[in-house]
Simulated scan of single mutants.
Amino acid sequence: MAREDDPVELGVQLLARLEDAELSLPDVIDRIETVSTHPETTRAILETAERRGHIRRDGETVTPVSGRFLSFDSEVISRKGDFECRRCGASISTGYFMQLEAGEHGPFGSSCIRKVTGRE
């Protein structure tokens, strides 16, 4: 099990759970930037996810291949509070958090959690 403060492992687990059929590389980076905006970390997340077989890359196209989607019933929890969305930076009163093996990832607003997971 990875340490909870390991951004590479958290990012890899995020990419392993995407529901999109395929994404552009900028869309994948948009999701990775919810974990880290550091270029070396972004590259490490992409390379590790590809090496482990979670994604396939063909130029600017990324295809998730795991087929193991995040369950909104058991792996996404919501909390009331005063939060800032990790994706868009908006102030939110309900935060949605992904429960991944590498740790909790969030908070996200209601539309951003769907975007990050590939439900929208």
Rank of each mutant, 00 (worst) to 15 (best):
L70K: 05
R31T: 09
G109T: 07
I113A: 08
K115Q: 12
H54V: 03
R51D: 09
D5C: 11
P26A: 12
A2D: 10
V8D: 02
G81V: 06
R43H: 01
D58R: 14
G59F: 09
D27F: 03
I113E: 06
E84K: 12
T48I: 02
S66T: 14
R114W: 02
E60N: 15
R68G: 01
V28Y: 07
I45A: 01
R86H: 05
F97L: 12
E19D: 13
R43M: 03
D73T: 13
A21E: 15
G59T: 05
I55Y: 05
P107K: 01
D82C: 00
T94E: 15
L23C: 08
A90G: 11
I29A: 10
E9Y: 01
G59Q: 07
S110W: 00
G106S: 10
G109Q: 04
C88K: 09
D20L: 01
A90E: 15
P26F: 10
I32T: 07
F69P: 10
T117V: 14
D27N: 13
S24P: 03
A49N: 08
D73R: 14
T42F: 00
I92Q: 06
G89H: 05
E75T: 10
T63P: 00
E40D: 13
E9P: 02
A21K: 15
P7A: 10
I92V: 14
H105S: 02
D27Q: 15
D5P: 09
F108W: 00
V76D: 11
F69M: 06
V12C: 03
L23T: 08
R52E: 13
C88N: 08
R51S: 11
D5H: 14
H54E: 13
F72W: 12
E47C: 00
R52Q: 12
V12Q: 02
T34N: 10
R68F: 00
Y96W: 11
R17W: 01
S93A: 09
